[in-house]
């Protein structure tokens, strides 16, 4: 069964993929080995895991402005996430999503998105309508 989560309208095209969830924050500069496509920061909750083509679900954005260019660079090498969902995005990640044409949403109506979605669930993200659908939600009656 599927379950629909409402969020603020976001940026980028609709996207579908498998969730990679962490109660942690995100910066392309601080946290990633962008060539290898994995989280490289030792203290990050997703250290060592690949983010390529996953729908990244994290708390908020952190750190500096570099992520704006980096999302674009990662997307052109096909080494980017399929989408990023935040509790609260910052300006940089939104700007990066706009340049990269990458799906991004935040501010979920039903609470903490890192609790609402579990790693491994398949998601459909519709930024224009502000809707994220969990396509295989076992808890939905």
């Amino acid at each position: 069964m599927s379950r629909i989560l409402k969020c603020h309208p976001g940026i980028g095209p609709a996207a579908e993929g498998v969730a990679l969830v962490a109660k942690d924050d995100f910066s392309a500069r601080y946290d990633l080995d962008r060539l290898a496509g994995v989280f490289s920061r030792p203290g990050h909750a997703l250290a060592g895991q690949s983010y390529v083509d996953r729908i990244l679900v994290v708390n908020t954005a952190k750190g500096g402005v570099a992520s704006a260019w980096m999302l674009h660079e990662m997307k052109t090498r096909a080494m980017a996430p399929a989408a990023i969902l935040f509790n609260a995005a910052n300006t940089i990640l939104a700007q990066g999503a706009a340049l990269a044409d990458l799906a991004m949403c935040d501010r979920f109506a039903d609470g903490d998105v890192t609790d609402l979605i579990r790693t491994g669930q398949r998601l459909h993200v519709d930024p224009a309508r502000g809707l994220v659908t969990i396509l295989d939600d076992e808890e939905t009656p």
Binding site: G64, V65, A66, W69, M70, E73, K75, R77
Partner: peptide, 11 residues
């Protein structure tokens, strides 16, 4: 901010 490490070839 436009360092080439961030820009890459695409930027």
């Amino acid at each position: 901010m436009a360092d080439t490490e961030s820009l890459g070839e695409a930027g």
